[in-house]
Design a binder for these strands. Structure first.
Lengths: 261, 261
DNA sequence: ATATCGTATTGACATGGATCAAAGCGACAA
DNA sequence: TTGTCGCTTTGATCCATGTCAATACGATAT
């Protein structure tokens, strides 16, 4: 019954429910950036207390989303970035002819919305795959503050750059890998990101459907399903619906490098 | 013919080093950013004369590259961005197992190197596909100046964001399109970019091989070649080696949207 | 001219993944 | 309990593209 997609162990969780009951606003402010901004986010990394406080002020408001709700859609005017506090998102693009593609899955500590900066409008849809909460970062204010705080400026540039590199990796995957390699890469990537967030590397709950995985990997859902089955037969993983347990991570890694030709 | 693996050589521009000296400087300054920065580059768009001057100082030095020379390689320490003045580049990634993928083609007015910001080291190779020249933009100085000049800051953010959106489009292509659609999209994209630079939309010279096109599009070179031939049979284009003439651009566009389910 | 080398085209065949179709499973509501 | 619905698994085929191989082309050097 209880899935092990709960954090295994962590000193202080950003979304501890009892936190809202605490009377002191300082706590919530602190929670806003010091805690919530996980390793990967890094907008707040290296900031002094005072600078952090300024960032907290900027990131004042939040927004909760139910599963399947859109954070923004293609064409929406761009105003803010969104730092995911809790939850899980996908971004996707929809073509006129009905084809669509999932371009990414985002989890706590990652930033959404950077696609909108260039044209002042969002170029993809961002949808919550489970009930989620984001911090709203008004972009004009972020630019303003990062003119003042060099570290913040650089952190932001790093975040964008890493996104570019991530995309390059995905192109590589889509351009050169076969179905099983793609899925292995996907699982290892998920595992790694869950680990970073303090969850188990070996056992996790996928929030997305086979179809969404397939869309992301440039495969059909049947192909994804078959690859899962084969991995299971080969003793690499255990699959029960959306619950994945990685048995032989090295085996998965071997799949990646060791392909014909 | 010198081969590709030579250490890259720097050539200093005679004109630029001390622009403080003469009235010539005004001309060279103009050449440095007002002219060179074509529509798409936009780092200099909307800057005042004075701001432009500051940017010109920053973008002092240049570098010439011969065909097949590397501008930077995977792992090179990241120090600067490069604005392409003239020429044509590709970026690619090489995996240990020998697979590689072209992740982009860049032409005059576009910026290279942003992949390195996040990790302080470049994550791909940038290679000149013809003799080329780039402006070197030391990144620390760019950050410094963009803390001072809001417009510059915003322009830079836009450039990065557009790169993200471009990558999304490429993912879409790699994930959902069939061979002929990919090639049609590629040709239309090239045509559009040549047009932006004042070249003919209908007739151009490809700088890359079929294999490089294939790598970029996630196809084998034979498939690219066959698709070219079919386009020619259908009267959409004329192909003579690397010389392409687009006869029926609308026909190509139709290929994009009108695919079976 | 002829030889050579990288590149491109074309053909014949193989195959990985798509497609079509049918069950199976789990969650939830009545 | 039973039924429904969305999602997943599995099987049987098909086909677009990869693979292998032969040839052609264009540029350059001799």
């Amino acid at each position: 019954m209880d899935q092990s997609d709960k954090p295994t162990e962590r000193e202080s969780e950003p979304e501890l429910p009892n936190k809202s009951a605490l009377p002191i606003s300082l706590v919530t402010i602190k929670a806003a950036c010091s805690q919530c901004s996980l390793h990967e986010l890094c907008l707040s990394e290296g900031l002094s207390k005072e600078e952090l406080h300024k960032l907290d002020n900027l990131v004042g408001s939040r927004r909760k989303l139910k599963r399947q709700q859109s954070l923004y859609r293609v064409g929406d005017p761009f105003e803010a970035l969104y730092a995911i506090r809790t939850g899980f998102f996908k971004t996707d693009i929809l073509l006129e002819d009905g084809r669509d593609q999932v371009t990414g899955f985002q989890m706590a500590g990652e930033i959404l919305g950077m696609d909108g900066i260039g044209t002042e409008a969002h170029s993809c849809n961002a949808v919550a795959l489970e009930d989620s909460e984001v911090c709203i970062i008004p972009f004009a204010q972020l630019e303003h503050l990062s003119r003042e705080i060099q570290t913040l400026q650089h952190n932001f540039h790093k975040v964008m750059s890493r996104e570019l590199v991530r995309d390059q990796g995905l192109m590589m995957l889509l351009g050169t890998m076969r179905a099983e390699e793609r899925l292995a890469a996907f699982l290892l990537n998920m595992s790694q990101r869950f680990t970073t967030r303090g969850y188990s590397a070996a056992e996790f709950h996928l929030r997305m459907t086979r179809e969404e995985i397939g869309s992301y990997l440039g495969l059909k859902l049947e192909t994804v399903s078959r690859a899962f089955s084969r991995f299971q037969e080969e003793g690499l993983i255990t699959v029960q619906q959306k619950h994945i347990r990685i048995i032989d991570g090295d085996g998965l890694k071997r799949l990646l490098n060791h392909q014909p030709r």
